[in-house]
Simulated scan of single mutants.
Amino acid sequence: MSRGVAEPQPGIGRTLIYLAWVVTMAFFFANAEIQIEGGAGWATSLPTWRIENNIWLDLFWGGRAMTGYHAWVFTFMMLVFFSPLAFQGRWTLRDWGLALAGLIVFWVCEDFLWFLINPAFGFENFNPTKAFWHKHWLWGAPVDYWGGLAVALLILVRRHWPRR
């Protein structure tokens, strides 16, 4: 965009379409991950390295194990969500925020859908006992879900605040 020309205000409709796309991607990825992991969540039966019981995991990873599988797949999905910024060569705070909010919504939806559509789980097994890798729960869901969705909502609301 040329200098002095204000960037158009992003439309809420476009953001909602983007979020619908993100949820659709989460659905497909959840299905792929079910094919990879089966009923053994958090890569517990995959031939991958694991780091467990570490103070840094408690602080930044919800107490869950860090696995080679998750290190690679989380990095890959981050690159997917930020690739439009790289291809456009435009790293505005607004675009960066949308990519980050999309990534957060993707992971929350993908994880929840993994439970819902996985034949080995289903909604009835979406609890702290069966989903033992989610160590902290609040209001019937992992705390990560609530925190992540709150951050994504704040980013998206800020994205649509009028500019001064």
Rank of each mutant, 00 (worst) to 15 (best):
W49F: 10
L93T: 11
L57E: 04
S83C: 12
I12L: 13
W49L: 11
P47V: 09
N125M: 05
F27H: 11
T24K: 13
P128S: 02
G38A: 02
L93I: 10
T48F: 11
A20F: 05
W61A: 07
I51E: 15
I104V: 02
F81Y: 05
F81K: 01
E52V: 09
L138E: 07
T92R: 00
F82H: 10
L19D: 05
W139R: 12
W91N: 00
M25V: 08
A99K: 00
P47W: 02
P119W: 05
S45E: 13
G148M: 03
A20E: 12
A6Y: 10
L138W: 15
R90T: 14
P142C: 00
T15G: 03
F126D: 02
A32W: 09
W161Q: 10
I36K: 11
F112P: 08
P10W: 12
R90D: 13
L57T: 01
A120C: 03
H134A: 05
V73T: 09
A43F: 01
T44I: 07
N54K: 13
W146V: 07
N127F: 03
A152Q: 00
W49T: 14
M1W: 14
G148D: 00
G102I: 00
E7Y: 15
M25W: 14
F132T: 15
A99D: 06
L19H: 06
V73W: 09
L103Y: 03
V157C: 06
E124C: 04
L85D: 10
A86Y: 06
V5C: 15
T75V: 12
A32R: 07
P119I: 00
R64V: 04
V151K: 01
F29K: 04
E110Q: 08
I104K: 07
F115T: 14
L57Y: 03
I55E: 14
W21V: 14
K130Y: 15
Q9N: 13
F29L: 10
L85E: 06
V22Q: 01
F76T: 08
D95G: 14
D58K: 03
